[in-house]
Amino acid sequence: MNTVFHVTDRSVPLSAKARSRWPARLDLLQSGTGLALGLFMWGHMFFVATILLGKDAMWAVARFFEGYFFFGRSLYWLVSLIVAIVFALFITHAALALRKFPASYRQYRTYRDHMAGMKHEDTTLWYWQVVTGFALFFMASVHLYIMMTRPERIGPFGSADRMWSDLMWPLYLIMLFAVEFHGGIGLYRLALKWGWFERGDPDATRRKLRAFKWAITAFFLVLGVATLVAYVKIGIEHAPFYGQPYEPAWVTGGHQP
């Protein structure tokens, strides 16, 4: 257990031998991809939650990202491209975060015992960040792959059918909690890690950041559950018409399935 460091026999300033610059780059990349994904998830939640404002609002948001309002028709590959970029960020972030995971059962056991003894919120939060991150490896990959390959099915009915008729709601429900906890803790830790928002009193900043983090997590969980329920409700109603896309009345002239 005890560590013995190697003794360096050097009494003059360090020489020009170069340690790799990659640890710095990888650390920045892990933080950068985490920040980008965290902020993306906040935006994403608002976009999907437009279903709470009505089917027309969600339809408009989906078509917006397909370039419908710019080109007069839907370019689905635009959505696939955006998803592919997010997927690349996700894989990069996951690969970099893996470096921090416990590398053996011994390390895992040591951390759990340490956590149980310390009863220290930030130590415990890191464990849950690892657990939720691990879950997202699988759940987010399923979601991202479907979004990337079937962008034309994103819409009030398409998404609702996916939730209910395609039986995806259990996955989305668990993923909602995993994303909100993982992202919330991650963004909070990011601010502390790089010393953002520190104004003289780091303890006060930390208290405020932690309160903000829990408030944001609670807000997005309530919004997310309400959104999920809305899609499930539409999915149940639309089950007999599975596969038919939604068209607003002002586009179809009043004809709806």
Partner: peptide
Amino acid sequence: GNDDGVFGCMTLLGCQ
């Protein structure tokens, strides 16, 4: 400048 040094810190803040 490596993962045994400052980039290894996971900001758990038990130290603080």
